[in-house]
Design a protein around this nucleic acid. Structure first.
Length: 356
DNA sequence: AAGTCGGGGGA
DNA sequence: TCCCCAGACTT
């Protein structure tokens, strides 16, 4: 019995019971696959359930607004996934009569669907013989076959895709792909792989040479930038001033507060004197309350953030600023750090109201 | 080919 | 801290 057959056999006994494994509906599989991009199953699972309940068909999804999609996506990160899904859903509604494509060739054309996702959907839905290569598959192949080519180099990506295609069980590509990924996620884990109970260890190059901790090889490229955000909390009786994020920055399409980005930020530095701040709020700006600095870590950025509550109204408005009723605030998709701040703030306000 | 896009969890 | 997660898109 070869490597792939052994993994499939293991899979039948050890697989987790996950909801998207009970369907061949391409729309439902697409939903799960995009949600799971760069996301752990445990983190994505509740989002999958909420999305499927809200949008049982791709046409339901297509008929939603971007605000609705992003609100449901809130907290999951990589928000362009949600925006791209809406474009694809609308295309499927309008150009495919609501029938979600099932072939690799059609799927790969769609926004937000790359090689991995096209292979996943086509193999799971209609057993098209396409090998998936995700982080799990890179790791399993690198270890078992002892491949030390970097998985994120152009050469490495090609090599591993070829290897995955060779290993693929063409009789049952869907099950095979599931088995490869499940094995990587559950047993052949990045850290502390369970080699002690592994049934393919005797054929595994990494196990034989004691190199599981060295494989797979990955070139590190990530450079983390520091950025300094000054957020302004402006409340006009029952309304709060919000900002819609546009352009090519983080959190595109989500909502935050009026923002002044500075080149540095410390506990003591004076922001009232900044020209941008004066332009927004006038020279007689009064700070009602300043909150302590917060750190917020993203993959490529470290954000240092200060929230400041300001008295009065701005004298100049940016085009993306608007007032929203505090009662309606829950409808807006907010970045995690903004959500945390606002919920804490208004809880405090409520408590002080009750105690008066 | 390199840079960018979130947030969470494990060691 | 660092690394990784059912990757894809832009520059």
């Amino acid at each position: 019995m070869n490597f792939a057959n052994q993994l499939v056999q293991w899979y039948h006994v050890n697989k987790r019971d996950l909801p998207w494994r009970h369907t061949t509906n391409a729309y439902i599989i697409w939903l799960s696959e995009v949600i799971l991009q760069q996301t752990r199953v445990e983190q994505g699972l509740p989002y999958f359930n909420r999305f499927l309940a809200a949008y049982p068909t791709v046409t339901d999804f297509a008929n939603a607004s971007e605000d609705e999609i992003l609100k449901l996506w809130q907290g999951l990160g990589y928000y362009s996934r949600g925006r791209n899904m809406l474009k694809t859903a609308r295309l499927v509604r309008d150009e495919y009569k609501g029938n979600f494509p099932e072939s690799y060739q059609e799927l790969i054309k769609l926004k937000g669907i790359g090689e991995y996702t096209a292979a996943a959907i086509s193999s799971f839905a209609v057993n098209e013989a396409r090998a998936v290569v995700d982080g799990n598959v890179y790791r399993v192949l690198a270890r078992y076959f002892g491949v030390d080519e970097p998985i994120n180099s152009t050469k490495g990506k090609k090599l591993f895709q070829q290897l995955a295609d060779e290993v693929l069980d063409k009789e049952q590509p869907g099950i095979h792909n599931q088995a490869m990924m499940e094995f990587g996620a559950v047993l052949c884990k990045p850290k502390n792989p369970a080699c002690g109970i592994c049934m393919v260890r005797l054929g595994c190059e990494a196990f034989k040479t004691n190199a599981t901790t060295q494989l797979p090889v990955k070139l590190k490229t990530v450079k983390v930038k520091e950025r300094f955000f000054n957020y302004f909390l402006i409340i006009d009786s029952s309304r709060i001033l919000m900002n819609k994020r546009t352009g090519n920055d983080i959190w595109t399409g989500l909502y935050d507060l009026p923002l002044v980005e500075t080149s540095t930020l410390t506990e003591t530095n004076e922001i009232v004197t900044l020209p941008e701040v004066k332009a927004y709020f006038g020279p007689t700006l009064e700070i009602e309350e300043a909150f302590g600095l917060q750190k917020h870590v993203l993959t490529h950025q470290r954000l240092i953030i200060r929230f400041v509550k300001v008295k009065g109204k701005p004298v100049h408005f940016e085009p993306d600023w608007f007032y929203v009723d505090i009662e309606e605030l829950h409808k807006l998709a907010l970045p995690k750090i903004i959500f945390k701040f606002l919920t804490n703030f208004f809880k405090f306000e409520n408590n002080s109201l009750f105690s008066n």
